[in-house]
């Protein structure tokens, strides 16, 4: 993990994304502490003021400072985004695991449901949930979380399916390893990286989704406010003080970009390092299994005979072998079969 972190910081985009994320988190922590008083100071006489030295983004309909409000809103905006992603993971990952672990029939049923669910507009799902549990931050967070859950379910199902057929899972089963350890140690540990990457990007997606809901008046409601809500306030004053809308809008865009960049950078870091190699190896192991299956069954031993004639019986304690490795012709499209692994040990 430390090596991955170093890789993240070694790229320009990685450093930029990391620094911006740090700033956002810092702002989320100190923002409400420092600027709350200013953000909530009502002065109707100063309503809808254009930007000035005193009010950088101008003021809203109650004369509150839009800049201070934008800073304070960082906490709610980020927290709800993280919470929504958390819900998506908590709902989606177990469903994907179940679908992959328990039989092909469940898997195909799952696939039909999830494919429809993914094609379904996420905002509509979120609105549906919001209607049921009421308009507000919890409704928006739960709605976006549930809307994103199918994505995690499908990813987990695909990844798990690719791991669960590997021999080390079979080996663990023959050891009598209980299910929770099997899932934790052998499956989740080996599919964690793509999940982490998707989780990172999904925070950005959640943030945009919740902002959209708040912007439409279906998320945070007064007295709570997040960037989406501030953006819709600012839109009302777009003719007189455009910064009131552009400010929160820029913060939304920036955060969205930070999380998607971060996801990309993490993916790159995993790709460069041992994790990527491991993935390559898993794929190779599977390729080998499939190529074994496509070998013409009856030719194997005959071909050995042809190849082995005249081969000196050199090994003192052990007759030569290696039939499948050198004897059989490479089956169609099995590159890994044709090239033997480098001799080691």
């Amino acid at each position: 993990m430390r090596r991955q972190l170093r890789t993240v910081f070694s790229t320009v985009t990685g450093s930029v994304a990391a620094v911006l994320l740090l700033l956002l988190v810092l702002l989320a922590i100190v923002g409400p502490i420092v600027w709350s008083a200013k953000a909530n100071a009502i002065d109707v006489a100063k309503a809808w003021l254009p930007p000035s030295g005193e009010h950088w983004f101008g003021t809203d309909e109650l004369g509150r400072d839009m800049f201070a409000r934008s800073l304070v809103a960082t906490r709610l905006s980020l927290l709800s985004a993280v919470a929504a992603s958390g819900i998506a993971i908590v709902v989606g990952v177990p469903i994907g695991l179940l679908a992959a672990l328990f039989g092909p029939r469940l898997t195909s049923a799952f696939q039909s449901v999830v494919n429809v669910a993914i094609a379904f507009p996420a905002l509509l799902t979120a609105m549906f949930v919001g209607t049921v549990i009421g308009i507000g931050v919890p409704g928006a967070v739960l709605g976006v979380g549930i809307a994103l859950a199918p994505m995690f379910a499908r990813l987990t199902q695909t990844l798990t399916a690719s791991v669960v057929s590997l021999d080390y899972v079979a080996a663990a089963r023959t050891m009598g390893v209980p299910l929770h350890k099997l899932v934790g140690r052998h499956i989740l540990a080996n599919v964690a990286e793509p999940l982490v990457i998707t989780a990172t990007t999904s925070v950005g997606t959640s943030l945009l989704g919740i902002s959209a809901l708040s912007f439409l008046g279906l998320g945070a409601r007064p007295p709570q406010y997040d960037w989406g809500g501030l953006l819709s306030t600012g839109l009302k004053a777009i003719y007189t003080s455009p910064l009131a809308a552009i400010g929160p809008g820029a913060l939304i865009a920036l955060s969205g970009i930070v999380f998607s960049l971060l996801g990309e950078v993490i993916a790159g870091a995993f790709g460069d390092s041992q994790a990527g190699r491991r993935f390559g190896r898993v794929a190779r192991a599977m390729a080998r299994r499939s190529s074994k299956a496509t070998l013409p069954p009856s030719d194997v031993l005959l071909d050995v005979a042809n190849l082995r004639v005249g081969f000196p019986s050199e090994a003192g304690s052990f007759p030569p072998c290696g039939v499948s490795r050198c004897g059989s012709p490479p089956a169609s499209g099995s590159a890994s079969w044709a090239s033997p692994a480098p001799a080691r040990a």
Partner: peptide, 10 residues
Amino acid sequence: EVGKRPASAG
């Protein structure tokens, strides 16, 4: 070397 091989099949 093992890792670099592209996952052509599977």
